[in-house]
Design a protein around this nucleic acid. Sequence first.
DNA 1: CTCATTTAGTGATGCCTATCACACAGATCT
DNA 2: AGATCTGTGTGATAGGCATCACTAAATGAG
Lengths: 214, 214
Amino acid sequence: MQQFLKDLFPELAPDQELIEEIERRSSVREIEKGTTIIDYGSYIHFVPLVVKGLVKVMRENSDGKEVLLYFLSGGSTCAATFSCCMVRKRSEVKAIAEEDTTIIMIPLEAADEWMGKYTKWRNFVMSMYDQRLFAMIDTVDKLAFSKLDEKLWDYLTERVLYTDNHTVEVSHQEIADDLNASREAISRLLKKLENQEKIKIHRNKIELLEQQVT
Amino acid sequence: MQQFLKDLFPELAPDQELIEEIERRSSVREIEKGTTIIDYGSYIHFVPLVVKGLVKVMRENSDGKEVLLYFLSGGSTCAATFSCCMVRKRSEVKAIAEEDTTIIMIPLEAADEWMGKYTKWRNFVMSMYDQRLFAMIDTVDKLAFSKLDEKLWDYLTERVLYTDNHTVEVSHQEIADDLNASREAISRLLKKLENQEKIKIHRNKIELLEQQVT
DNA sequence: CTCATTTAGTGATGCCTATCACACAGATCT
DNA sequence: AGATCTGTGTGATAGGCATCACTAAATGAG
């Protein structure tokens, strides 16, 4: 586990004492694709660091519709969750494993205590907030300016990064939900991408063609 | 100034030593409406706490278009700026005073030093990040689901909170820019709101009618 | 007071996408 | 093999908003 940590969270690595403390006090959890890791309204007793896989973080708005906020992949953690922990409030977001995922679970008390004790930890947490903030800015940017076809292509290329065979396993409906669009529109645009030979459509599965993955 | 601080930042108030330290090491700056407080690419040597007024924070995307991120009013600070300070990077955002504004400027070194020294300060900074993150989530939500008329109404009601005479001083073009819409569309929708007797349109000025400000 | 500049109002046109309404095909079950 | 789902393909329709092309007020500068 020390190697995990050092590879994925290089900011923490220099502080051997911290690394050992993390190892001593946290546990590793393997999560199967599709599992809900955190749900709305639940209390959270641990800070999750994503080691491997892909986690989708989203939020339900007042009308009950869900907005995709961002994806978390290896080497990152969810700032929104972190803040929930810190102020002991219920989660405002939902996190789902979109691929088989491994996380390190750090008990709340430890995460809290380390804030005062380890500068490296504090900076790590700050930089995670920072990264999420900028991920959100990107999301805003896309929503504000991109048309659906562009959003779709971005979505596919981002997701394919976290699979091994250039293939994203989703239905058109799921994509539509993530992009706040209608299934029909997604289907039609996918067909267009297929005609452009950028992707191959299979049932429940989109394959990005080689030359495009550069 | 101690009173300012205690009123606007109640989280900090209990720590008298911190309050005194802030007073000793920071300065107050009065900013005229329209002034650019922070610009893209500039280095920032102080953390600004907004005491009074309204500050618009935005970002330029790769195509040179600007996205409105959020407004800051009394009692808040800009997380994006804060993180710029902390890692000594150039600003990725631009901040403009939309009303006459007063800020407390805290030197970078002090803000940094206090992170280790004062729990209250640390929690304050964390909660500011948290608040900005959720402001961004709201922005995303509106972009994803609201139609232009709703966005416009939200925009007006939010902005009118920070003026005294139920009047927002903006041109249709400015609103259009902030909402990523066309001026014509904004003009037409404003006219509709005027017909519904929710607002009164003046040149460079929108007046929200009494009964609506509840 | 006039002319130039900003700011606003209005119609016409067209694109994008939501929505409705089905047809169809692969998967799964019985 | 037939019946039932679930995921897709397709056309028709309609609404929202961008864009273009002007006109018309309001303001400011000389």
